[in-house]
Every structure is written in C-alpha cells, then in structure tokens.
Amino acid sequence: MGKIFPIVLALIGLAAGGGAGYFLKPPPAPEIVNPCGDVGGEDDSQSDPDVIAHADVDSEFVKINNQFVIPIVNDEKVTALVVLSLSLEVSTGNREAVYQREPKLRDEFLQVMFNHANTGGFDGVFTQTSRLTNLRRALREVATSILGAVVHDVLVTNIVRQDQ
C-alpha cells in the first residue's frame, strides 16, 4: 500500500494537470476572410504576417567585420576597455562598396570613438540614450562623408566595458 500511494497520487496529478490544460486552452484565432474574395495581382508577402515588408525602405545591413576596442585612459593609465560591434544600414546593393572602404571606415570610426572616450562618453552610465545617440550621430556623419548618401544609419550591435 505504501508503494502504490505515490504512484496513484502522480497519476491523479497528471490527470488533473491534463484536464486543466484542456479546459483552459485559449480559443483558436479567428480566421480572417476577405469579403471581396482573393484579389489577383497582390504580393503574397504583403498578406503574410511572418514576412516583414518595407516598401518605403530599400536597405540592407552590413556588419563591420571586426570589433572595435577603445581604451579608457585616466591619469595616463588604461583603466578600462570598451569593445563595440557596428553594422551599417546602407542602400541595397552597396555591400561591396562598404567592404572596399572598410579600412578607411575603421580608421575614422576609431577616431570618433577615441574622441568620445576622451570626452567621458564611456564613463559612468555609458549606455545612456543621449550618449549613444551622440556617438551614433558622429559615426553616421563619418560614414556619410566616406560612402556618401548610401548610408542610412550606423547601428551599435554590441557594446561591452571591461574595467581593469
């Protein structure tokens, strides 16, 4: 009897859990029916919610290959390192142009980030929106000066600060 009791309790608990799940499941999503019927000539991606369509934005994202490492210097000593990963949002078809100009982009981006670090941009709450907005704006200006109007935005995809 002592060995059967835990098994019976487990079976009762399993049945109660299954019954509760069956009766408490959410109702099925209502099917959306087009009252005009299937209209020909529509792009299926517009009606599929899993496909994100950006008809007004024709851009692609280009990841800058290597991370950027920026030293934080206080009293002539490196007190921390900031590691950043960046991507560029550019007009479609300009991926190769970004990779061809990547050495120049990296050099100019590093200069902007060094200036940001020297003015205290990576001190304290360095992920504050206003600080990152200023950094992104400066990076976008540099990218636009190198690549032209094909650059839409600069995205900070990863940022880490390692104190020494």
Rank of each mutant, 00 (worst) to 15 (best):
V8Y: 01
A10C: 02
L11S: 05
I12Y: 03
G13S: 11
G13C: 13
A15Q: 08
A20Q: 08
G21M: 14
Y22H: 11
F23W: 13
P26T: 07
P27K: 11
P28Q: 01
P28W: 00
V33D: 09
V33S: 10
P35Q: 10
G37N: 10
V39Q: 09
V39G: 00
G41P: 07
G41L: 04
E42N: 14
D44A: 14
D48R: 12
D48E: 07
D50Y: 12
I52T: 10
H54Y: 11
H54W: 07
A55V: 03
S59K: 00
E60M: 09
F61I: 14
F61W: 12
V62E: 05
Q67F: 05
F68L: 10
F68K: 01
V69T: 14
I70S: 02
I70D: 06
P71L: 09
I72L: 15
V73P: 08
V73E: 08
N74M: 10
N74Q: 13
K77H: 11
V78D: 03
A80Y: 04
A80F: 00
L81I: 08
L81A: 12
V83L: 08
L84K: 01
L86D: 06
L86R: 06
S87V: 10
S87F: 04
L88P: 06
E89S: 09
E89T: 08
S91A: 13
T92R: 09
R95L: 13
R95H: 09
E96N: 09
E96R: 07
Y99L: 14
K104T: 07
K104Y: 02
K104I: 02
R106I: 08
D107A: 15
D107N: 15
L110M: 15
Q111F: 07
N118W: 03
T119D: 13
G120H: 06
G121F: 09
F122W: 07
Q128R: 12
R131T: 12
L132W: 02
